[in-house]
Design a protein around this nucleic acid. Structure first.
Ligand SMILES: [Zn+2]
Ligand SMILES: [Zn+2]
Length: 801
DNA sequence: AGCACGCCGACT
DNA sequence: GTCGGCGTGCTC
C-alpha cells in the first residue's frame, strides 16, 4: 500500500496539521509529493498538500483514511520550494501552510473535470443543521451517497446551477476538480518575420487581412510560438506567408541580441566582476551607484550573461510603477520574460506562474511576491532599490523579500545582486563586514553631472515675514521664477497629501480627530471633506468645535493640494500638475501626467514621494524639497535613514539629462546632520555616523528586534494581555545570560486604529533564535488570551507605527 | 481552524 | 429536569 503525509490546507496560525493517508490504486506513477489532494479530515473534506510519500505507516496510527482525489496532475512545488517554505515558517514565525500559500498560487478557477461529492454522511444527515435541504433533494443525495461522486455536468442537469450552489454554500456537497495543467509548447519552434517591408502591410490588409494580422502580431511580439500561431490561424494563411518569404519558422534559439549601448569603463568593470563569478556558487554583491549611474544596464548585461550560460534570472523591483520601465528595457533584449506583480488578476498570475514552472521563461521580473516564482536553475537574483520598505510584507507571513532572495540564492548556488543609490544600513554593513562584495559606480553616465544643492533656512523666511507664503522661501520662489523664464521644468516634493495637515480650533486648540483612530483628520479639497489617512474614513469639516463650540476652526499646515493651489496663484501662467496617491487612483491620470511631463508640457510637477522614485525626466533642472523636516520627525529609529534616502532620491531627479540640475532643500533645522549629508550626497559619511549611533543605541544591524502588537477594541484588555506577555518575557530575561532589552509595554505611536487600541512591546536581542523561540512560545499559548484580542508578531519590523 | 464532547448555571 | 454557555481535546 502507498501512503502519503498530507499537510491540511487550513489557516491555523497556531500549528500545522500533518496526517497520513493511503493512496488507493491506481497509484499514479509520477511523483506525488508536491501535489494537492482532497481528503476527509475530521468530518469535513479539505484540500491538502502531499509533503511526503511513504510505503509504511507509523505503528501508533489506528485508522488511515484514503485520499479522496488527487487534484494535480503534477507537483506544484518541489523539494527545494518545500524547504524554502519550511525556512519561511521558521524564520518569520508562521505555519507551514501560510508559507506554502505564498509559493502555490490560489487557483480558484482553472479546475477541470469537476465532480460533485457528498459532504455530509448518510447516517449524519438528521443531525445536520440544514437537513431539511437533504430531505428536499433526498433522491439526489441517495444517489450521491451510493455512487460517491457525480460529474458536475450531470448534477447540473438534475438540480440546476442555483440549487447546487446553495447546497455547496450550506456545506452539504463539495465541488472538486483537477487543477488545470499547462500544455507546454513542444518542439520549441517559433515564427519570426523574415523578408518583409512594413510598407507592404497596408496593401496586404485589403487583399489578405488574416495574413496582415499575423504580420502585425509578429511585429509587435517579435516572435510567436509555432503551436500558438498554428492554433489561432488557418494553415493556408501561414503557408502563404511562408511561401512569400515574409515569415520563417525557426527553432527557438538561445542567441541573445547584442547590446547596443556602450558601457562606461566603470560599468564595464562592474559587469565583469559579476559575470566572472557566475556558476561559482553563492555570492552576494552590492551595486552601489548614484542615481543615473546606469545600474539598469548592468543588471541587463549580467542577466544576459547568466541566460547565455543556460541559467535563469529573477529581477525584483519595489513597486508596480517601476516594473514597466525595466520590463521595456529587458524585453527588448531578452526573449521570454515573465512578469509577476500584485496588480495582475489571479488568472493572469496563474498563467504566468504556469509558464515559469514549465521552464518557458528565462527571466522573471516582478514585485515582492515574485521572489517565490517557481524558477528552477536560478543563476542570478537581482534586487533593484534594495532599501525599499515595500520588500517587507506587512502581514503574516511577514517576510522580507531581500532575505528570501538571499536564501534562494544560497539554496541554488546563485548570485545575489542588490542595487541601490542609498543602500539600507543593514545591507551596506554586510558589505563592510565582507559578507558581500561592494561594487561602486561613482559617476553619472553620459554628460549628466551631479546637481548643485542648496539648503534654505526657513527660519529666516519666517523672521523676515514671508513675502509669498509660509512654505515657499524667497530663494525657492526666485529659482522657480528663473526656471520658468528659461522654459525649464521643475519638480516640487512635499511628503504630505491632502490640502492641510490638521483642522484646529483657534480658541481652545482642539484637533479634529478620526472617530476610529487616534490621528488627526486631513482636509481634502477635491472631496471637500476631512479624511483619515490611516482608515480612509471621511467626514464633513465640522462647523463648530466639538469641545468649546467655537466657530473659529482653522486648517493648519499644508499638503500637496494647497501647494498646488498656492503655486497656481503665484505663477498664473505656469502649467502646474500634481501627482500623489489621490491622483493616481484615477485611472488614466497618472500616465497622462507622466507622459505630459516627458513631452515638456508641464512646467511644475508637485508630488509626494511617489514621484521621487524611478521616473526619469531628462529636462528637469530644478527640484524643491518643500519640507525636509517632515520626514525627520517620525517616531522610528530608522527616521534618519528614511529621510536621507528620500532627500537623495528626490535630488536625483534633477539634471538627469544634459541640463545641469539644482536642488533646494527647505528646512527649519539647516544644521541637521542628516540634511547636510543628504545635500552633499555623501552616503559614506551618513553611513558612518548612522552606524555609530546604531552601535551605541544597540539597534539593527547590531541586534535583532521582536515586536509584539496587541490590539483590541477594549483598551483594558489590551493592557492586560501586553502586561502578561511582558511578564513572561521578563522571566526569560532574568533566566538567560544573554543581553535582552525590553522596550515597553507602551501604546503604539498610533494608539488606536480602526476602532482597535494597540499596545506594543519590543524585545531586542542579538540572538535571533532566542527571539524566535519567544515568539513561537507566544503563538503556542495564544489560547490563554481572549481570542478577539489580536497578537501580532514581527521579527525585525520595518514599520513601527 | 472547526467540531464534538462535557460539565456547570438559569429557566420552562 | 432541560437548554445552552464555552473550556478541552481531537482530527490519519
Ligand atoms: Zn474649541
Ligand atoms: Zn481613521
Amino acid at each position: 500500500m502507498k501512503y502519503v503525509d498530507v499537510l491540511i490546507d487550513i489557516a491555523d496560525s497556531r500549528a500545522d496539521h500533518i496526517y497520513t493517508y493511503s493512496v488507493p490504486p491506481p497509484v499514479p506513477e509520477k511523483e506525488l509529493t508536491g501535489r494537492r489532494v482532497l481528503v476527509e479530515w475530521g468530518k469535513k473534506k479539505r484540500e491538502g498538500y502531499i509533503i511526503r510519500e511513504r510505503d509504511f505507516i507509523e505503528q501508533d496510527i489506528t485508522h488511515v483514511k484514503p485520499v479522496i482525489k488527487i487534484l494535480d496532475r503534477e507537483p506544484v512545488f518541489d523539494s527545494k520550494m518545500l524547504e524554502l517554505a519550511a525556512w519561511i515558517a521558521q524564520t518569520y514565525l508562521c505555519s507551514l501552510v501560510q508559507a506554502l500559500r505564498l509559493i502555490v498560487p490560489r487557483a480558484i478557477t482553472g479546475k477541470k473535470d469537476k465532480v460533485v461529492l457528498p459532504n455530509v454522511k448518510e447516517e449524519e444527515m438528521l443531525s445536520s443543521p440544514a437537513s431539511f435541504l437533504v430531505n428536499k433533494y433526498l433522491p439526489f443525495f441517495e444517489e450521491l451517497w451510493q455512487r460517491e461522486e457525480i460529474s458536475l455536468k450531470e448534477a447540473r442537469k438534475k438540480l440546476g446551477k442555483e440549487v447546487l450552489e446553495l447546497l455547496a454554500r450550506e456545506g452539504l456537497i463539495l465541488v472538486a476538480g483537477v487543477y488545470a495543467g499547462y500544455k507546454p509548447l513542444p518542439g520549441g519552434y517559433v515564427y519570426r518575420l523574415a523578408g518583409f517591408e512594413v510598407k507592404e502591410l497596408s496593401a496586404l490588409r485589403k487583399k489578405a487581412p488574416r495574413q496582415a494580422e499575423v504580420l502585425a502580431l509578429l511585429m509587435e511580439k517579435g516572435e510567436i510560438a509555432a503551436e500558438q500561431l498554428e492554433k489561432t490561424f488557418a494553415r493556408s494563411t501561414i503557408e502563404a506567408l511562408l511561401n512569400k518569404g515574409y515569415i520563417k519558422k525557426v527553432k527557438k534559439d538561445k542567441k541573445i541580441f547584442s547590446a547596443p549601448f556602450v558601457l562606461t569603463e566603470e560599468q564595464e568593470r562592474a559587469v565583469e566582476m559579476i559575470v566572472s563569478r557566475l556558476e561559482e556558487g553563492y555570492r552576494e554583491f552590492l551595486l552601489y551607484g548614484v542615481t543615473g549611474s546606469g545600474k539598469s544596464e548592468i543588471y541587463l548585461r549580467a542577466a544576459q550573461a547568466c541566460i547565455e550560460k543556460g541559467k535563469k534570472v529573477m529581477v525584483l523591483v519595489p513597486e508596480i510603477a517601476l516594473t514597466r520601465h525595466l520590463v521595456e528595457m529587458f524585453a527588448l533584449r531578452i526573449p521570454g520574460i515573465a512578469v509577476m506583480h500584485s496588480g495582475m488578476t489571479r488568472a493572469e498570475r496563474y498563467e504566468e506562474w504556469k509558464r515559469i514552472k514549465n521552464g518557458e521563461a528565462s527571466l522573471v521580473l516582478g514585485t515582492r511576491s515574485a521572489v517565490f516564482a517557481p524558477l528552477s536553475d536560478l543563476g542570478l537574483i537581482i534586487v533593484d532599490e534594495e532599501q525599499e520598505t515595500s520588500y517587507k510584507q506587512e502581514e503574516t507571513p511577514r517576510y522580507h523579500a531581500v532575505e528570501v532572495a538571499r536564501r534562494r540564492a544560497q539554496m541554488e548556488d546563485a548570485l545575489l545582486l542588490l542595487g541601490s543609490a542609498t543602500p539600507s544600513l543593514e545591507t551596506f554593513h554586510r558589505a563592510m563586514e565582507g559578507k558581500s562584495e561592494l561594487i561602486k559606480l561613482s559617476r553619472r553616465i553620459g554628460n549628466a553631472v551631479m546637481p548643485v544643492i542648496y539648503i534654505e533656512d526657513m527660519r529666516l523666511n519666517l523672521k523676515r515675514g514671508p513675502k509669498h507664503n509660509l512654505f515657499l522661501s524667497d530663494f525657492l520662489y526666485n529659482k522657480i521664477e528663473d526656471n520658468l523664464k528659461r522654459g525649464k521644468q521643475c519638480i516640487l516634493f512635499l511628503n504630505r497629501r491632502g490640502y492641510a495637515w490638521l483642522t484646529v480650533c483657534t480658541e481652545c486648540g482642539n484637533i479634529v480627530l478620526c472617530p476610529h483612530c487616534s490621528v488627526g483628520m486631513t482636509y481634502h479639497q477635491d472631496i471637500k471633506r476631512n479624511l483619515c489617512h490611516y482608515c480612509n474614513f471621511t467626514a464633513p469639516v465640522p462647523s463648530l468645535c466639538t469641545r468649546c463650540g467655537s466657530r473659529y476652526l482653522q486648517q493648519i499646515g499644508f499638503g500637496t493640494q494647497r501647494l498646488e493651489e498656492e503655486l497656481k496663484r503665484l505663477f498664473p501662467g505656469a502649467r502646474i500638475k500634481r501627482l500623489d496617491i489621490d491622483i493616481s487612483r484615477k485611472r488614466e491620470e497618472p500616465r497622462n501626467i507622466l507622459q505630459a511631463m516627458q513631452r515638456g508640457e508641464i512646467d511644475i510637477l508637485i508630488g509626494t514621494q511617489m514621484i521621487a522614485k524611478g521616473f526619469n525626466f531628462p529636462s528637469v533642472s530644478l527640484v524643491g524639497i518643500v519640507d525636509a523636516d517632515g520626514m525627520l520627525n517620525l517616531p522610528d529609529f530608522r527616521a534618519g535613514e528614511r529621510a536621507f534616502q528620500l532627500i537623495v532620491q528626490a535630488a536625483g531627479r534633477a539634471g538627469r539629462g544634459e541640463i545641469p540640475g539644482e536642488v533646494v532643500i527647505q528646512t527649519y533645522q539647516p544644521d541637521n546632520l542628516v540634511i547636510n549629508l543628504a545635500a552633499k550626497q555623501d552616503y559614506m559619511s551618513f553611513y558612518l555616523e548612522e552606524i555609530r549611533l546604531r552601535k551605541i543605541l544597540n539597534y539593527p544591524p547590531f541586534t535583532n528586534i521582536l515586536r509584539l502588537v496587541v490590539s483590541d477594541e477594549e483598551e483594558k484588555l489590551c493592557q492586560a494581555v501586553i502586561n502578561e506577555l511582558a511578564d513572561y518575557i521578563g522571566e526569560i530575561t532574568d533566566a538567560k545570560e544573554e543581553r535582552i532589552e525590553i522596550l515597553g509595554p507602551a501604546p503604539c505611536p498610533i494608539k488606536r486604529l480602526r476602532d482597535r487600541f494597540r499596545y506594543q512591546l519590543m524585545v531586542k536581542c542579538e540572538n535571533i533564535m532566542l527571539l524566535r523561540s519567544i515568539g513561537r512560545f507566544i503563538i503556542d499559548n495564544k489560547e490563554r488570551f481572549p481570542s478577539k484580542t489580536r497578537i501580532e508578531i514581527d521579527i525585525n519590523p520595518l514599520m513601527t507605527m
